[in-house]
Amino acid sequence: MLYSEKVLDHFSNPRNVGEIENADGIGEVGNAKCGDIMKMYIKVDNGIITDVKFKTFGCGAAVATSSMATELIKGKSIDDALKLTNKAVVEALDGLPAVKLHCSVLAEQAIKSALSDYYTRQGIDPLPIVGEIGECEHCH
């Protein structure tokens, strides 16, 4: 299993680890049985994601993709965050081994799940904005 230097860097020094008290949105995806759970917390101000934190149970790639995903949406608008694809996360990490690509999918879903929760808390139906958050293919 060959991980890129970037993956190893984000694994050993993960950015934005932790929780946000009074978060505006919290999303959780994955399950313990598959060996990956990602939980993402966001703070939103005027449509901008001002802060983001994560907690992840999973392999090196799961931690690294969580870390990179938080970096990619921090300070960005909700619109930009919704456009973030798992592919962009993989590219930013200089690639992932094929068997670990599902981790990047989880990272994308974790962000969408947190944004979905944000809209729900605002009394807005998230479905037309965020869309369906698919299940990880690897798990099903």
Binding site: P14, V17, G18, E28, A32, I37, M38, K39, F54, K55, T56, F57, V63
Partner: peptide
Amino acid sequence: RAMSPLWE
């Protein structure tokens, strides 16, 4: 464990 939602 500190970063694991499962541990939580």
